[in-house]
Design a protein around this nucleic acid. Structure first.
Lengths: 160, 160
DNA sequence: CTGGGTCTTCCAATGATGGGAAGGTCAAGC
DNA sequence: GCTTGACCTTCCCATCATTGGAAGACCCAG
């Protein structure tokens, strides 16, 4: 199975498969004489695992932890559960944060006429500055476990 | 007022002020003979506006639109309101998406014993792959209007 | 044997931000 | 005046996950 087939089978683009290899998330596969990468069903399985975890907002770093646990027959399920629940917390915190942004903005928008007149409280609200809030409550960032979802127009290594 | 003072006054780091200048979000300021950038209270006002909008999850691109409206005395408040409400929608969609991830993950975690035994449905859930879902429902990405919140340890150009 | 699709590697860009080096400048204290 | 330290300048690099593209090698079917 070459990289294109593995990509189609797993839903991970060929580009990303090579990238995951380069960062050590997946082992370097065997090569054909011509240098083509060769993947097994097991490798594809692992790629599916990775894609699924990415879809759930796990960072690559986090996924590396999960894979280590996955490959370890003696791991305690408690470890996995802990990581998963930590991720749940990260996600929920993030969702709440974004909702707070939306609420603030909706509030501003509500007091705006929305007609032809140029006076608009939204702009004034933006201009006058916040209670110096939002920037301090988070020592977490998107990168720490959250990932932009796929663009949608990308499903594996689609040809053409 | 030099860039450091402007940074402290606006809450935008000196680095970012220069970056905003480089991408044309703010005009190139006057310079002293020595080449130092000089800012006015008005410039700081604009920077506060920008910071506030960033805190509300607007992308820089979006902010450029807002600034154009802000600077335009004849703009209709409807335009501003439209942009704001679009942003609200983006944020809420994103929040819902993240919540869905969290829910899925919480669901997986719930069926995990969390004890010393190595069998863990979370890993199996990840490995068996999703209903090929999540990747298609979004032609939007984080970049399109959503931004990681500040790291927290960064407030303007703090010295030391 | 040729053409089109596939593979390889490498390089670059994205967006917003931070880090740091190397060098010039300013203001205060001695 | 001179030193010191805080500030400024530009420039390059890193992040994170992902995509794009170029240039060249390869493989299979016709």
């Amino acid at each position: 199975m070459n990289i294109g087939e593995a990509a189609r089978a797993s839903g991970v683009s060929a580009k990303m498969i090579r990238y995951y290899e380069s960062i050590g998330l997946i082992p370097r596969p065997a090569r054909t004489q011509a240098g083509y990468r060769v993947y097994s069903a097991n490798d594809v399985h692992r790629l599916v695992f990775i894609r699924r975890a990415r879809d759930l907002g796990f960072s690559v770093e986090r996924i590396a932890e999960l894979i280590a646990l996955w490959s370890d027959r003696d791991r305690a399920s408690a470890d996995v559960k802990r990581i998963a629940l930590e991720q749940v917390e990260i996600l929920e915190r993030k969702a709440r944060e974004i909702e707070a942004m939306a609420a603030t903005l909706r509030h501003l928008a509500k007091s705006c006429h929305g007609d032809d007149r140029p006076d608009c409280p939204i702009l004034e609200g933006l201009a006058s500055g916040p209670p110096t809030g939002t920037a301090d409550h988070g020592s977490h960032r998107f990168g720490a476990g959250l990932r932009p979802p796929k663009k949608g127009t990308m499903r594996a290594d689609r040809r053409a």
